[in-house]
Amino acid sequence: MHNDKLFMKLDEILNYISVEIGERLTGSENNKKVEAYAENYFKNQGFEVELQRFSCLDFKRADAELTFQGETIPVKPSYYTTGCDVTGDYVKIETVAELKRSHLTDKIAVLHGELTAEQIMPKSFPFYNPERHQEIVRLLEEKNPAAIVTVVEKDESIFEDGDFAIPSVYVSMDEGEVLLENNGELKLVIDAAREDSHGANVIARLNPEKSRKLVITAHLDTKSGTPGALDNATGIAILLLLSQLIKSEDMDFCLELLLLNGEDYYSIPGQLAYMETYLQKPENILLAINCDGVGLKKGPTAVFSTECDSKTEDLLNQIILDSTGMVFIDPWVQGDHTLFVMKHIPTVAFTSEGIFDILDTVIHTEKDTIELIDHEKVIKAVRVIEEMVKKFKLEVPL
């Protein structure tokens, strides 16, 4: 297929996923639309498709209103919070020591300082959960405030946990300063709900009868409030376009195009489902390739590899060095490639070098739009991965 046709298909895919659909939280109707779109796309290219289903919550994000001394203070609901309508005195708490001494029954806890310096990891997140975070959550559950207001330096939710039952919101330092300088009564209304739902990993396979496979991954979900162009509509598009370019006769192994669902969900249910079912025999996976955040206009496409043997490294080096506009960088841990790295599976990851500069300001926000994307860089990544798959058979014998 000529690149001009790939450009047209890429534009079509990105506009459908990131513009027409946009936000696609795991378990939401928009998320299910992308599942169905990808399933049909892969099937039309002759792939066998499995929908690996799992249970999750559908977060109905709405609005929140905080009132103090007759004035409304702008706040946002924490992701996956429960709703509430509460009025009560508030208690300012800056440290864990203060939290231990506090009495919060029927009161609203206003957390700031060291307690809101970073996002608190969800209770059930399996890979990283510092003892300090666990202690904060445990103390809050023991103290049982009517609700929580977090005063934050960054515009991000401190709590993002469907297993945490205390209603909460977050407010900027500028807007929340009035609370820290005063005392009194607050009224907090959160219009939000979470409902039982389901999601699915979309797993497309060529040569499914082969016992060993090469896996190419991307995640199809987003955070709340973002159209998720870089994170990760471009990754989805790469896998869909690859399904048009690679045929069963191009290889003597199984090719698995894996759209994981839940990378931006608090308990990564899709990733855990895949690990439990398909990563029990890691020796069957020849190579894993992850695509996340590819195509940023600013900066080159970035690649790293780990756990690869010398033949695979030589193949990768040859292709990347022949491909202008790509650079090798040190490994990073954020992303679905970590599932494979933990199992010591040969792994390659593609992203954008410049993406690390906008993690706090663009990614996971309403600013992550298709205007940020360089289509040519995405197509180049498609072609590089296509070449890797086709040459893997020839240059790295089974």
Rank of each mutant, 00 (worst) to 15 (best):
N44H: 13
E50C: 04
F164Q: 03
L279F: 03
L239E: 03
S124M: 09
I21Y: 07
D357H: 06
D264P: 03
L115W: 02
I21S: 00
G225I: 05
L220E: 10
E195Y: 12
K123M: 09
V151C: 13
E141R: 14
I120F: 08
I363R: 05
K343A: 05
G270H: 01
E114K: 03
D357Q: 15
S310A: 12
N40S: 13
P300F: 05
E283R: 13
N182D: 15
L104E: 02
L14I: 14
E50W: 11
K143L: 06
S18H: 01
D221L: 08
N201M: 09
K187N: 15
N3A: 13
P227Q: 04
N31R: 07
P122W: 04
E94L: 06
V152E: 00
L245H: 08
V396L: 02
T67R: 12
T150D: 00
R24N: 09
Y278C: 09
L186M: 10
V333L: 10
A38H: 00
L372T: 04
S211C: 07
V389D: 00
Y90L: 10
E50F: 10
L286G: 02
E94P: 02
I385C: 05
P346S: 03
C291V: 09
A165H: 10
E20G: 09
Y80Q: 00
E39H: 06
F42P: 03
R53P: 08
N290G: 05
R132Q: 07
P130H: 11
K367W: 03
V149Q: 05
L180M: 03
D106E: 15
E94D: 12
K311S: 15
G299W: 07
F159S: 00
E71R: 15
T82L: 13
M275P: 00
L259R: 01
V341P: 00
A36D: 08
L258V: 04
E153R: 07
L6G: 00
G225F: 03
Q271A: 14
Y278Q: 03
E366V: 06
E65V: 11
L242W: 02
I13P: 09
F54S: 08
C84N: 04
L272W: 09
V34I: 13
E256P: 05
V178C: 10
T222N: 04
V34T: 04
T95D: 00
L214T: 00
L25N: 02
D11V: 06
L139V: 06
T306S: 14
A146E: 10
E114N: 08
Y266W: 05
L279Y: 08
M1E: 04
Y274H: 08
G354W: 06
V341E: 11
E142M: 11
F54Q: 01
L51D: 01
E98N: 09
D174L: 08
F328A: 10
S197M: 07
L239Q: 04
G270N: 03
N284V: 04
F54G: 07
L287V: 02
T324A: 14
I190V: 12
E313P: 06
R132E: 04
M1R: 04
S352E: 01
E135Q: 11
T82Y: 08
K391R: 15
V382I: 14
L51Y: 02
L180P: 01
F68T: 00
D322L: 10
L6C: 00
K60G: 13
M251Y: 07
F304I: 05
Q334W: 12
C291T: 13
T361N: 08
D336L: 12
L398S: 10
A204P: 05
I345S: 06
L321K: 12
H133A: 08
H2R: 14
A237R: 03
I21H: 01
